[in-house]
Computed example of a mutant assay.
Amino acid sequence: MTFWLFKSEPDAWSWGQQVARGNEGEEWTGVRNYQARNNMRAMKVGDRGFFYHSNVGKEIVGIVEVIRTSAPDSTSDDPRWDCVVIKAVRPVKQPVTLDDCKITPGLESMALVKNTRLSVQPVTEQEWATVCAMAQTAPD
């Protein structure tokens, strides 16, 4: 299993909206960055990710699972853009802020800390375990 982080502005798409989609999940559309797109192309069904509220809150609020691999983005006529489908797995018990990540040993190289603009990011196993511990949430 590989781990990821998905960023969304909560006024555009919130954790609550993601949860409301249930097991059907939601396409992670609108990504127009090649690196983020390539990250989605590398995803496999069953991969897990953090759901991060950007701009407002700037915190990890939940865990999601990839339920469909990369396919053409239904919101674009341009064949360069793909998206995955993710479903909510569970909220974290304690949201983890960007500021918390910046000061936590072992997270100094995390993409969230180093590349705050990238909307879909890889997360290492060690980063996943550290953030889950901070979130008081089981890593599985």
Rank of each mutant, 00 (worst) to 15 (best):
F3G: 00
W4A: 03
W4M: 04
W4Q: 05
W4T: 01
F6A: 05
K7I: 09
S8A: 15
S8V: 05
E9K: 03
E9Y: 04
D11P: 02
D11S: 14
W13T: 01
W15T: 02
G16E: 15
Q17L: 12
Q18N: 11
Q18K: 05
A20D: 14
A20H: 07
A20R: 12
A20C: 08
E24W: 04
E24S: 12
G25Y: 04
G25N: 11
E26H: 11
E26L: 03
E26I: 06
E27Q: 10
E27I: 07
T29H: 09
T29Q: 13
T29P: 01
V31D: 03
R32D: 10
R37P: 02
M40K: 01
M43K: 02
M43R: 01
V45S: 07
V45G: 09
G46F: 08
D47T: 04
R48L: 15
F50P: 00
F51N: 01
Y52F: 15
V56Y: 15
V56F: 13
V56E: 13
K58M: 13
K58L: 12
E59V: 00
I60R: 01
I60S: 01
I63M: 08
V66S: 00
R68A: 14
T69Y: 07
S70L: 06
S70Q: 09
S70I: 05
D73I: 03
S74F: 10
D77Q: 13
P79M: 09
P79S: 14
R80W: 08
W81A: 04
V85Y: 03
K87S: 02
A88K: 00
V89Q: 05
R90D: 08
V92E: 07
Q94L: 09
P95F: 03
V96W: 00
V96G: 06
L98T: 06
L98Q: 08
D99C: 02
D99L: 11
D100E: 15
K102Y: 11
I103E: 14
G106L: 02
G106E: 10
S109A: 11
S109L: 12
A111F: 10
A111T: 10
A111V: 13
L112R: 03
V113Y: 04
N115I: 08
N115A: 13
T116R: 13
T116E: 14
T116P: 08
V120A: 07
Q121P: 06
Q121E: 13
V123G: 01
T124Y: 09
T124K: 10
Q126S: 12
Q126V: 09
W128K: 00
T130P: 08
T130D: 05
C132A: 08
A133L: 10
A135P: 04
T137V: 08
A138E: 15
A138D: 15
D140N: 15
D140G: 12
